[in-house]
Design a protein around this nucleic acid. Sequence first.
DNA 1: CGTTTGATGCTCT
DNA 2: GAGCATCAAACGG
Length: 196
Amino acid sequence: MPAPGGQLPDLSHPAVEVAPQLLGCVLRRGKHAGVIVEVEAYGAEDDAASHAYRGPTPRTEAMFGPPGGLYVYLIYGMHLCANVVCCDEGIGGAVLIRALRPVTGLAGMRRNRPKAASDDQLCSGPGKLTAALGIRKGDDGLNLTTGAVRLEPGERVDTCDIVTGPRIGISKAVERPWRFAVANDANVSRPRPVAR
DNA sequence: CGTTTGATGCTCT
DNA sequence: GAGCATCAAACGG
């Protein structure tokens, strides 16, 4: 069930449960902010695709921290991915933010992403949105309520407007339909999920 | 140690 | 649709 507008989901719950509830919430860094329109859940029991699968390491430490934290990591040597840490401390669960609909600080985001062909491609991917918002490696582990990067209540997203599908870019546990997105939103990365 | 592989994005064909 | 950039973990010997 998606979170009603005006409040955040309970982040101490499992990632698969929290993920769809984050749709409609706002991710902000300074003046740059956008509504979350696409996410993926990681770190449930036996999830071989999760960075938490083999226990904590220096890189994944934030994923095992308290819910409501930010997990940032470098992927493919050049892009950063941002995750909302959820589940109880020590479990190692997080929700990858895959796409945003930009709402404030558009001019700054365009400067951060000069190659984006249009505004709906500013944040249409996990590496794109971290660049657009200006999220950096040093933001890893900070608190999303008090830190430089914040998670804020946003708009309500109706359950029937949420589509699901397999997670993107993984080679393990590919069959799990743990990608969630707002249906018919131009900011969602490709391929667009179709299933309900 | 050396080698492979990524929760990606951009360019060129 | 294929290839590449670029580097830190993970993995095998």
